[in-house]
Simulated assay, not measured.
Amino acid sequence: MTVSPSDLDAVSAQLGRPARGVRAVAHRCGCGLPDVVETLPRLPDGTPFPTTFYLTCPRAAAEIGRLEASGLMREWTSRLESDPELAAAYRKAHEAYLAHREAISSVPEIAGVSAGGMPDRVKCLHALVGHALAAGQGVNPLGDEALELLPDWWAEGPCVGEEPG
């Protein structure tokens, strides 16, 4: 897979630092810019990097931060403990995440570690939303639920630079 120089420039501007280990644009925002990138399991400097689907849009990240601040992660972790169907679907999302990353490259240091607290707790909604956007609806149930709670972060236009054209 390739990533265009303009995509890398946009992601770097979104992050406020040079993008590292980007393998592909995993999802595009409603404005056309990348909002989730797929990263290599091992960064170019050799560091293991378990977050395969990395949310880059600062507007989306800010909205997700508001959800996290509301205590939603604690509530959803409790739901996992009391709802076996949700727990099974969340475990399946974890397994899909691991399989996707392993298909890119095997990194023993992060074997079995996905993102966002999967499979037993909810630790980072940013990672769950990134996974849900990249994988599509129906793969990560809590990522899907978080997406439903977010406003249209792209409605005001691109978060950085100009709309791609």
Rank of each mutant, 00 (worst) to 15 (best):
M1F: 06
V3I: 11
V3T: 13
S4T: 15
S4F: 00
P5T: 15
P5L: 14
P5D: 15
S6P: 01
D7G: 04
D9Q: 13
D9G: 03
A10Y: 06
A10H: 01
V11W: 13
S12N: 07
S12R: 08
Q14C: 04
Q14Y: 05
R17V: 13
P18C: 02
R20C: 00
A24F: 06
V25H: 11
A26R: 15
A26D: 12
A26E: 07
R28I: 07
G30A: 02
G32A: 05
L33G: 00
D35M: 03
V37L: 06
V37Y: 12
L40M: 12
P41K: 11
P41M: 06
P41N: 13
R42N: 09
R42M: 01
R42S: 08
R42G: 01
L43M: 13
D45P: 09
G46Q: 13
T47V: 07
P48V: 11
P50W: 11
P50R: 15
P50Y: 12
T51I: 06
T52G: 13
T52F: 00
L55G: 03
T56E: 15
P58R: 11
R59E: 03
A60M: 14
A62G: 09
I64C: 07
I64P: 09
E68G: 07
E68Y: 05
S70D: 10
G71I: 01
M73D: 09
R74A: 13
R74V: 01
T77Q: 05
S78Q: 14
R79H: 10
R79F: 02
E81Y: 00
E81L: 09
D83R: 01
D83M: 00
P84V: 01
L86R: 15
L86I: 05
A87I: 06
A88S: 10
A89D: 10
Y90K: 04
A93C: 09
A93E: 12
H94P: 02
E95N: 04
A96M: 08
A96F: 05
Y97W: 07
Y97P: 00
L98P: 02
A99E: 15
A99D: 15
H100F: 09
H100Y: 06
R101E: 13
E102L: 03
S105N: 01
S105M: 12
V107Y: 06
E109M: 03
G112F: 04
V113D: 14
S114L: 02
S114M: 04
G116H: 10
G117H: 01
M118A: 04
R121H: 11
V122L: 04
K123S: 02
L125M: 06
V129M: 05
H131F: 09
L133A: 04
A135H: 04
G136M: 08
Q137D: 14
Q137Y: 08
G138L: 04
N140C: 15
N140S: 15
N140D: 15
G143M: 11
D144L: 03
D144M: 01
D144E: 12
L147W: 03
L147Y: 08
E148W: 00
L149G: 02
W153P: 02
W154C: 11
A155L: 12
E156H: 00
E156A: 08
G157Q: 12
P158C: 15
V160I: 11
V160W: 07
G161H: 13
G161L: 11
G161W: 14
E162V: 00
E162L: 00
G165K: 05
G165T: 10
